[in-house]
Design a protein around this nucleic acid. Structure first.
Length: 945
RNA sequence: GCCCGGGUGGCGGAAUUGGUAGACGCAGCAGACUCAAAAUCUGCCGCCCACAAGGUGUGCUGGUUCGAUUCCAGUCCCGGGCACCA
């Protein structure tokens, strides 16, 4: 009997579906219910990051994380847990809308098709998702609750005293009693009013003030505006200041936008990191993103004018080293302080900056800036300081203005050198005139009352002085900004908001879901508004025309899986209390500072408002690495280097010494190039040439070796993508080798967390392993070979070593070494000619999470009636693997010279004796006495001479 | 530019806490079986030198240590993110 993986996998996929083996039971929500059997087990929630169902389907990089989580979910089930493992779709998004604009197909239609395709591909791999819990964010029964949560955010503010979200009604009560005395306004820190004033404000004014407090609020923000396309563009649709489509100019434009006041949660988001199991790198990225810093805000007088220039600095100790000020090009003071003489230069510079994306501005190495003509006065010594404008200062951070200290800050230093601004040295020998030195250890010089004080101590002294003299105040700042929460797009959740006389009012809960209306055109509305602004029935109702961004639906979806069909609430409290946090969350690091922070914030708000019982969504986060594709390029030479379009071109072998002047992509090269990087003429000419290269009108100069003609091509690792022609479809591999082989091979490639190149070459080896396993049960000629004989000690040793290793590896998500451990076990059992059910049965249970189909088939062949999914994970017993001695490496001065078999309970003295008698060691000692002998029990022996 | 990660044979990778570098697999080479092929099995397989002994080796330069792929400092290269792709 052969290993017929196609028949086996088909059969079990159908059988499992029929038996509903992956449906998971919730705990009973009412006391009347009695079927609490499953719910009594400990729970485990294993979740993959929500996929966006893109039109190109899954490539081999996508399932990596899904396979890892599936293995873990199945493993935990065997370990006796009630495992929630689910999948659904983050179905709103820009690509579907873009596709609609280009092809006239409604996003709902193309999204449905894409989802069907995704589902088919996922089913192929044999995941244990409970599909009865599937949903998509674009479904009104789901986004009803996204809108509902938005209303809770809208109706809440962050009470800084209690450090939690509370209802707006609490705030209104406080305003009525005492104005905003105890609730400083996060949206406008200068806002102060009394209870009387509040009493006398009209409705619009009150709503406006409350808006400054709400966790979901409306404000104004800059967007990428493309006049020619009449639309707002996403960052990645803008390339070098031009639109990706059409290459039209893109400028910044202020538009009304919704925001989430995530900055109020900055401290809680930081503290929360201490109680979750994320990688240090991930925690660091989030910490840096939040960017908490402490320092001071200091006001500088501007010449004779009444205006003050407020700067934020973390280094107030350097106040006497300030040689110039830099304000952001968007700074409010630009217009008023610029002198007539500098007006033209400033205008030109502002125009230039408007065409620059924030990314470009931060990444720019070239120094640029312009002098305003105005001077600020150092508040301590009244020194005149020129005020400059430069793009390296961003309007959104701090006060949008900095005091520049060239001797202590690298960017300020370069700026000063570039514009020939004189540099004051306040740190003596620490500054060499060539490079800035950001030290805090220097003793201050040229610093008035700070002279002779160490910088890090001066910080506190200056802040106190600043506060005493009223020229500024201590200030904690965050780099993180409030999250922009609206898009001028069609394919997203509508806001449950209507506008009456310029005031935003929430819809009543009963009006939810506010369904997305049908549109015939996806063209933007007037003035950069979204397509909804074109619909009369929508604007007649004064409904908000923006829609929510992609991360709205994905910020809380993990809760919905717990109770996906509930139409009374987003998730029953008893059920969320049971399933609680996600125990294992798997996804890419690209979500580090977007999705992960937003969903952490939403969870905290829902917790504060007492809708759920935990304030961190993900207990353990595992980041899967990217699988990169291999792309191949031809070297293309022109006869000379003048004009590649006119001169005849030819291709020859890629050669590092003689690099091409241009290169040409060899499409799907990963399927055709041999191990030495050669492309053979016979493959190329098998009618494939036109598909394989972008421009077939090229001469190829083949190299010859015997009969063979070939050229060398260049190999490059790139992100896998259909447009790069370097993808493989999992379906093809599953068809060829089966899902079990595919699953194990993806794991065998390397550690899940690491990015690695895709290569199908090794898949044969994994397939061979499964065939070899099969032969432990069935011989091609003899048929059934497994027996009921009692296992030997040697066989049990192999088994128990495997149990220990595979359990450890699975627990620490080291699936690649897990797969090799299976290979080792099967190799050893084959060598021992072990076909004993007693051993093989346990092995199958170990294997079931990794290769579920073959494990289930053989499990039934061994005579079991029930599924292997519910078997009991074998228990490791140490007694089978005990060793009494070890082959010790013996080194001299740290270099291994020989090995010796020594009893594991040997004492230092015994070991020294054995080692010194050894011929090899004697030779290395050359008759000298060893200085000392290091003996680490169970590890090694080192003789030091 | 800033933040994070990575760099080990021809290739993917292993070495879990500082203790035999290269497990397992691919590719390659030699052989067995076969009319032949496939499948399967056996052996070899970092580099240099090669009879052996040895030397050398985890991007690069240094350091700590009896001992460093592992820890520290510096440096180069590659990948991801940087707020409207998801």
């Amino acid at each position: 009997m052969e290993y017929n993986f196609r028949k086996i996998e088909q059969h079990w996929k159908e059988q499992w579906k029929e038996d509903k083996v992956y449906e998971v039971q919730n705990p009973p929500t009412s006391t009347a219910s009695t079927s609490a059997g499953e719910a009594l087990k400990p729970k485990c929630y294993v979740l993959d990051m929500f996929p966006y169902p893109s039109g190109v389907g899954l490539h081999v990089g996508h399932p990596l994380g899904y396979i890892a989580s599936d293995i873990y979910a199945r493993y935990k089930r065997l370990k006796g847990f009630n495992v929630l493992h689910t999948m659904g779709y983050d179905a709103f998004g820009l690509p579907a809308e873009q596709y609609a604009i280009e092809h006239g197909i409604h996003p709902a239609v193309s999204t449905e098709q894409n989802i069907n395709n995704f589902r088919k591909q996922m089913d192929n791999v044999g995941f244990s998702f409970d599909w009865s819990r599937e949903f998509r964010t674009s479904d009104p029964s789901y986004y009803k609750w996204t809108q509902w949560i938005f209303l809770q955010l809208f109706d809440s503010f962050f009470n800084r005293k209690n450090k939690k979200a509370e209802r707006i009604s609490v705030l209104v009560n406080a305003f009525e009693k005492e104005g905003n005395k105890t609730h400083a306004c996060p949206g406008d820190p200068t806002l102060k009013f009394t209870a009387d004033e509040w009493e006398n404000f009209d409705e619009a004014r009150r709503m406006d003030i409350l808006m400054q407090y709400r966790l979901a609020y409306c404000g104004y923000g800059e967007v990428n505006w493309c006049e020619a396309l009449g639309t707002v563009l996403a960052n990645d649709e803008v390339i070098n200041g031009l639109s990706e489509r059409g290459g039209y100019p893109v400028v910044k434009k202020k538009l009304r936008q919704w925001y989430l006041r995530i900055t109020e949660y900055a401290d809680r988001l930081l503290e929360g990191l201490e109680k979750v199991d994320f990688s240090d790198a991930m925690k660091e990225m989030q910490t840096n993103w939040i960017g908490k810093s402490s320092g001071a805000e200091i006001d500088f007088a501007i010449g004779e004018s009444a205006d003050k220039l407020r700067v934020y600095t973390t280094r107030p100790d350097t106040i006497f080293g300030v040689d110039f000020m830099v304000i952001a090009p968007e700074h409010d003071l630009v217009a008023s302080i610029t002198t007539a003489g500098q007006q033209q230069a400033v205008d030109d510079y502002i125009t230039y900056v408007k065409s620059r994306s924030e990314r470009e501005r931060m990444a720019e190495k070239k120094i640029s800036g312009v002098f305003t003509g105005a001077y600020a006065l150092n508040p301590f010594n009244q020194k005149k300081i020129p005020i400059w404008i430069s793009e390296y200062v961003l309007a959104g951070y701090g006060t949008g203005a900095i005091m520049a200290v060239p001797c202590g800050d690298e960017r300020d230093h370069k700026f000063a050198k570039f514009f020939n601004i004189p540099i004051t040295n306040i740190i003596g020998k620490y500054y060499d005139g060539v490079e800035a030195n950001p030290t805090k250890e220097a003793i201050l010089e040229n610093s008035d009352f700070l002279n002779g004080i160490v910088m890090k101590e001066a910080i506190e002294i200056v802040i106190r002085k600043i506060e005493e003299t009223g020229i500024g105040m201590r200030k904690v700042n965050f780099k993180m900004r409030d999250a922009a929460f609206s898009r001028q797009r069609y394919w997203g959740e509508p806001f449950p908001i209507k506008w009456i006389d310029g005031v935003a009012y929430p819809l009543d809960e009963k009006e939810l879901p506010l369904e997305l209306p049908h549109v015939d055109s996806y063209k933007p509305g007037p003035e950069g508004e979204g397509p909804l602004a074109n619909i009369k029935s929508w604007t007649d109702r004064h409904l908000e025309t923006n829609t929510m961004p992609g991360y709205a639906g994905s910020s809380w979806y993990f809760l919905r899986y717990m109770d996906p069909h509930n139409n009374k609430t987003f998730c029953d409290r008893k059920i969320s209390d049971y399933w609680n946090q996600v125990d294992l969350y798997i996804g890419g690091t690209e979500h580090a500072v977007g999705h992960l922070l937003y969903s952490r914030m939403w969870t905290k708000v829902l917790y504060d408002l007492d809708y759920i019982g935990f304030d961190e969504p993900y207990k353990k986060l595992l980041n899967q690495g990217m699988i990169t594709g291999k792309s191949y390029f031809f070297s293309v030479y022109t006869e000379d280097n003048i004009d590649i379009n006119k001169v005849k071109r030819h291709i020859s072998s890629y050669n590092k010494k003689n690099p091409a002047n241009i290169s040409q992509r060899f499409k799907y090269g990963h399927r055709f190039v041999d191990n030495d990087g050669r492309l053979f003429r016979k493959i190329f000419e098998k009618g494939l040439s036109e598909e394989l290269i972008e421009d077939p009108n090229l001469d190829i100069q083949w190299e010859k070796e015997g009969e063979e003609e070939f050229i060398y091509v260049e190999e490059v690792s790139e992100k896998m993508s259909k447009s790069k022609f370097n993808v493989d479809n999992p379906d093809d591999l599953v068809a060829k080798y089966g899902a079990d082989t595919f699953r194990m091979y993806e794991m065998f490639l390397g550690p899940v967390e690491m990015s690695k190149p895709w290569d199908t070459k090794g898949i044969e080896g994994v397939h061979r392993f499964l065939k070899k396993l099969w032969r432990l049960f069935f011989d091609d000629v003899k048929g059934k070979v497994w027996t009921d004989e009692k296992a030997t000690d040697a066989e049990l040793k192999v088994l128990h070593r495997a149990i220990k290793k595979i359990e450890d590896d699975t627990e620490r998500f080291s699936f690649n070494t897990g797969v090799s451990s299976f290979m080792i076990a099967v190799n050893e059992l084959t060598d021992l000619k072990c076909n004993k059910k007693q051993v093989l049965e346990s092995l199958l249970i170990l294997l079931a999470p990794y290769a579920p189909h073959i494990a289930e088939e053989l499990w039934h062949q061994l005579g079991h009636q029930s599924t292997v999914l519910d078997a009991r994970y074998p228990l490791f017993e140490g007694k089978y693997v005990i060793e009494s001695s070890k082959e010790y490496p013996i080194s001299v001065n740290g270099k291994t010279r020989t090995t010796l078999n020594i009893s594991l309970d040997a004492a230092q003295m015994d070991v020294e004796k054995i080692v010194l008698e050894n011929e090899v060691i004697k030779k290395w000692l050359e008759g000298k006495a060893p200085k000392k002998i290091i003996y680490v029990k169970g590890k090694m022996v080192n003789v030091v001479v």
